[in-house]
């Protein structure tokens, strides 16, 4: 079954220089293993091809049912250098919530 991340997660993004971070948080504890398994750094890097040019790192925070992604070289230089409308990556969290994952697990919710 295919689900979009927005069905099981909320998220917030921001900037540190030319790196954007996205915190992806499962709505329920039982959804955390799903995102931990399916939303890998590689998947996210592929999702943001053409946006993040410096690789993606992932950190796990199971205590908050959350993953933290760092998208390097994703903000057009960052700060006041960036020519992007979203120079601080504020809407990249929503862009991640567009991602679909294929799950075999029992129907969520």
């Amino acid at each position: 079954m295919k689900i979009q991340l927005r069905e099981i997660c909320h998220a917030r993004s921001g900037d540190k220089g030319d790196t954007a971070n996205i915190g992806l948080i499962a709505f329920k504890e039982e959804y955390y293993p799903l995102i931990e398994k399916h939303v890998t750094a590689e998947r996210v890097q592929g999702h943001f091809a053409g946006i993040a040019f410096g690789g993606v790192e992932r950190y796990e925070l199971p205590n908050l049912w959350a993953l933290n992604f760092l998208l390097h070289r994703a903000l057009g230089g960052g700060g006041t250098k960036s020519l992007k409308n979203d120079a601080q990556g504020k809407t990249l969290a929503a862009a991640l919530l567009r991602m679909e994952i294929e799950i075999n697990e029992e129907k969520v919710r």
Binding site: R12, K16, N21
Partner: peptide, 25 residues
């Protein structure tokens, strides 16, 4: 939680002049 995840890097090492906080705890 959304604010906790805001603009952090490695959650095990949130470095400030006062300490290094571990957000996974």
């Amino acid at each position: 939680k959304e604010q906790l995840l805001y603009e952090i890097g490695n959650p095990k090492e949130y470095i400030t002049p006062d300490c290094v906080a571990d957000f996974t705890t």
